[in-house]
């Protein structure tokens, strides 16, 4: 598994489009199984952090050596997307469980992740990110990397190939955008 990913990552780094396309499902699968395994060993009431999972997955898949920049980038972009998908999928599943006027906040965590974000927040963030992508792809990307891959701004800047200063400005833009956007969307739940 790990060897596969490494191979895929370096193939993708050399421009192999097919390999790049296969990274996401591989990372996705790894994250899922990792999370399931962690949850089993995590005492009830404690939470898993998605970013910690991504880092752990990274160590397992890519290893502690220093692979080339492109491989790292592929991994973290893929991981961020996978993590976002997983969270949203979970949130949707939970949301579909609560029908009608049930306003009680359902925690995501109890069955699978141990994450504590309210369903609505995850979905709202997901939608807001979609709108941000249209306005500023860079801002959306840095958000993904920070929130779902757990990278710092300088790390994200390196992977995105932009300066740290630019990354910080994009990040600031992203924060302002998400705040303002989500104020509108969360109106739905806070009657």
């Amino acid at each position: 598994m790990s060897a596969d990913i490494t191979a895929l990552l370096s193939a993708a780094a050399k421009g192999d489009g097919v390999a790049a396309a296969r990274i996401l499902p591989a990372v996705y699968k790894e994250l899922r199984s990792l999370a399931a395994a962690r949850m089993k060993r995590t005492p009830p009431g404690q939470t898993l952090q998605p970013t910690a999972l991504v880092h752990e997955a990274y160590l397992r898949l890519v290893g502690s050596g220093s692979p080339d920049w492109e491989s790292r980038a592929h991994f973290f972009f893929a991981a961020a997307r996978a993590m976002r998908d997983i969270l949203v999928e979970q949130a949707r599943r939970r949301a579909s469980l609560k029908r009608g006027g049930d306003r009680q906040r359902v925690k995501l965590g109890d069955e699978f992740w141990g994450l504590e974000s309210p369903v609505e927040d995850v979905l709202a963030l997901h939608e807001a990110l979609g709108r941000l992508e249209a306005e500023s792809p860079e801002a959306a990307q840095i958000t993904l990397l920070r929130y779902f891959s757990g990278l710092t701004t300088p790390e994200a800047a390196e992977l995105m190939g932009i300066s740290v200063a630019t990354a910080e400005r994009r990040w600031r833009l992203a924060l302002a955008f998400l705040r303002s956007d989500m104020e509108g969307t969360s109106a739905r739940e806070d009657v």
């Binding site: 504590e116 974000s117 927040d121 302002a176 705040r179 989500m182 104020e183 806070d190």
Partner: peptide, 27 residues
Amino acid sequence: ERLLDFDAPDLDVPVGDLLVSARRALE
């Protein structure tokens, strides 16, 4: 203008705070 209204110089915001922040701001 709206973006700037929601801008804050503190960039070290964990995502959870952001989410809560949005909701509280509204409340």
